[in-house]
Design a protein around this nucleic acid. Structure first.
Lengths: 115, 115
DNA sequence: CCGGATCCTTATTGATACTG
DNA sequence: CAGTATCAATAAGGATCCGG
């Protein structure tokens, strides 16, 4: 069904792709959302999960994602205060993008290593 | 075929998403590939199609896409020499990503304008 | 130790002009 | 037409510091 190239809701436009890129561009946002697509995570969990990210970048990217309504931030009343992040219902709507990117990334890796 | 959510080949990982981002990251690459997903285009057509891009960015992004085997460059024997760009067969494998991004982008725009 | 904030350096992108 | 060259602006990255 994703391969149907016609139909009114299948009008692929550069503008709509750019709109998406405006929200998701940057080196880390999709990786962060991918990590959160499995479960909610605390800040430090994210630092560990997202390979190579620095707390500064994580912090600012999470803020932007929160502003755009994709991620929800919750301060937990734990001993040393921790903050939990999770995808909002709206944030979960980008899962198909993450899914396709993951498929392609693995495919690409196989191609590079196989050749 | 692309919608199977289970099975061994559907393990979504941060690493594979990052691998994809390494190839497609940047503000313009997906827009360029979106433009080329309809038909092959000459350099100047791409400047017109991809809103806001400058020839420098287009040139360097096309080069990187060519290096990664996603785009094919063909010098045409026209009066003022022109160069045509098209997706390779491998480049066409990112169409599902573009498709999902386009769907989400339109959805997002409707949400922003509707609210 | 957690979640940043700040400062500074490097990499990427943008605007404009210019060449074969 | 299809790029390059150059310089200015912006974004990302590294190191360090701080309040709780």
């Amino acid at each position: 069904m994703l391969l149907v190239e016609n139909g009114p809701e299948c009008r692929v436009t550069i503008k709509s792709v750019q709109d998406t890129m405006d929200i998701l561009s940057g080196k880390w946002k999709l990786s962060i959302m991918c990590a959160l697509s499995f479960s909610s995570l605390r800040f430090m969990d994210l630092v560990r999960e997202v390979d190579g990210i620095r707390s500064k970048m994580l912090s600012s990217n999470l803020y932007e994602l929160e502003i755009n309504g994709l991620v929800k931030r919750t301060v937990l009343d734990t001993k040393p205060l921790t903050v939990s992040y999770e995808l909002t219902e709206y944030g979960k709507t980008i899962k198909p993008i993450i899914h396709e990117m993951s498929i392609w990334g693995r495919h690409h890796r196989d191609k590079i290593l196989g050749t």
